[in-house]
Amino acid sequence: MSNVRTTLATLPMSFPDPADVVFVDGDPSWPAELERAIRSGATGIVLVHPTPVDFDLLTADTIVVVDSPWASNPVNGLAAQAFRAAATNGARVECRVITPPGSDFATALLDQLALIRAVLGPVMKVQVRHLSDRALHAEGLTNLSVAVDFSIVCTTALPASASLRLLTSDGSVELTIPSGDTALPARLITVGPDGAVLAPTQYENGHRSSLRRLRELQATGSADGSAELRRLQADVVTTTAALGDHLRERNAVR
């Protein structure tokens, strides 16, 4: 959370009064915290890295942006163009995440769904193929019938990261997003018959990108402030449906 708050300092003109922005930590109690923030009259809220828990949407004028570790990266505007152009009929996308041991797989899967939503569209269904203490493998399908192979692998040897790869008939689109806690840029590479193109790198972390989005939504004056929460709610439902039985089984064994 402190990383997110300190990012405000990089937007002194957009947010001259930092107190105007309320940050809600995405730990499992976030729905109650979010409700409190909304009822307090906050005009802009950043929900940071939410865990997948059930929640009710509140009708209010408050604008809420969801700061998700991979989906908030500023590369995703360019990445969406590249992946959507390449995702022809029958396409498959690999979505791989490296995370430290002990990470919550439900949250990690929710983060992946948010990323796929950002670059390709919402994932309508996920089926978990294998789940252990250290890895998860699952398969999903987007609303445009793009198959997605999800994997989550635990290690401390590598920094957290997310990577996407879509193999085409004559090349690929590959995206690697580093941990959003620094401004280390994502790498988006499109390979085609004429060569490989690295998209311009953007040294802006996902937190700052989320804050800019909040500012832009506030500036429009007529933005749908709950749109990101509705999308989050749909991904929470998909995550819970995919993992619910598996997590219950594992907890029962323990």
Binding site: T155, D170, G171, S172, V191, A196
Partner: peptide, 14 residues
């Protein structure tokens, strides 16, 4: 039909 080969083996421990 890609021109770019990519042949990778990975093994992960904690």
């Amino acid at each position: 039909q890609t021109w770019q080969p990519d042949w990778v083996l990975e093994a992960f421990s904690d």
